[in-house]
C-alpha cells in the first residue's frame, strides 16, 4: 500500500496537517486500512526531504503540509503506471498451509475447511455492507467493497482447489489408481517389473 502517494493525493486538494491527513485517509478508505500517526509523520518527513511537499508552522503549532510541483509530478506518474506485480505478496494463509503440510502437526484438510468457513463469513459481512453501499452515493467505498469481495472470492476458490487436490492425493495414497509415472521419474528409479532402470 503506498501511503506516500495516498498522502500526496490528499494534499493535491489543499494543504493539511498530519492528523488531518490520517483522518482523511481513513475516511476515504472507510477505515479498512487504519494508519498510525507515527507512520504518517515519518512518511511526511520523507516527502519533505525529497522535495515533494513543503511544511510550514500552522496556527496551533501544528505543521501544515503543502504539495509541491515535484509532488504533483510524482503523483501523476503514480496514476499513470500500473501497480507492479513482480513482488509476490506474503500470504499468511499460503504459508500456514505449507507448514501445516510440512510439519505434519496439523490436519491440513481441517485447516482448509476452517479457513473457508471464516472467509465466507467475512464475505457475508462485506456483502451486507455492499448491499447498503449500493443504495448510497459513495462510489469509492463501493469500489473498495467490490475489491474486498473479489479477494475473498479468490481465496475461497483457491481453498476449494486445495481441498480437491488434497482429496485426490488422499485417494492416490489409499490405493486408487495413480497416473502413469515414467520409471525414470520415480524416486527409486525402479521400473514396474522390478528391473533396475
Amino acid at each position: 500500500m503506498s501511503i506516500r502517494h495516498s498522502l500526496l493525493a490528499l494534499l493535491s486538494t489543499g494543504p493539511m496537517h498530519g492528523y488531518g491527513l490520517k483522518t482523511e485517509f481513513e475516511a476515504a478508505t472507510a477505515d479498512v486500512w487504519p494508519l498510525n500517526v507515527g507512520q504518517v509523520y515519518t512518511t511526511l518527513g520523507r516527502l519533505e526531504r525529497d522535495g515533494l511537499v513543503t511544511a510550514e508552522d500552522g496556527a496551533e503549532g501544528q505543521k501544515v503540509y503543502e504539495i509541491t510541483d515535484a509532488g504533483r509530478g510524482e503523483l501523476a506518474r503514480w496514476f499513470e503506471a500500473p501497480v507492479p506485480r513482480e513482488v509476490i505478496p506474503r500470504q499468511e494463509l499460503a504459508i500456514k498451509l505449507v507448514f501445516a503440510m510440512r510439519s505434519g502437526l496439523a490436519d491440513v484438510s481441517a485447516v482448509v475447511q476452517r479457513q473457508r468457513v471464516a472467509t465466507v463469513r467475512a464475505l457475508q459481512d462485506i456483502t451486507r455492507l455492499k448491499a447498503a453501499a449500493e443504495s448510497g452515493d459513495d462510489m469509492a467505498w463501493l469500489l473498495m467493497l467490490d475489491s474486498l469481495v473479489f479477494q475473498a472470492e479468490a481465496e475461497v476458490r483457491w481453498l476449494e482447489m486445495c481441498e480437491v487436490r488434497l482429496a485426490m492425493a488422499h485417494g492416490a495414497a489409499t490405493g486408487r489408481p495413480k497416473p502413469d509415472v515414467p520409471a525414470r521419474l520415480r524416486p527409486n528409479g525402479v521400473a514396474d517389473d522390478g528391473a533396475r532402470a
Binding site: 476452517r114 468457513v117 463469513r121 451486507r128
Partner: peptide, 10 residues
Amino acid sequence: GEAAPPAGPE
C-alpha cells in the same frame, strides 16, 4: 461446516 456471521459491521 457452517458460516453464519455474528452481528457484524452491518
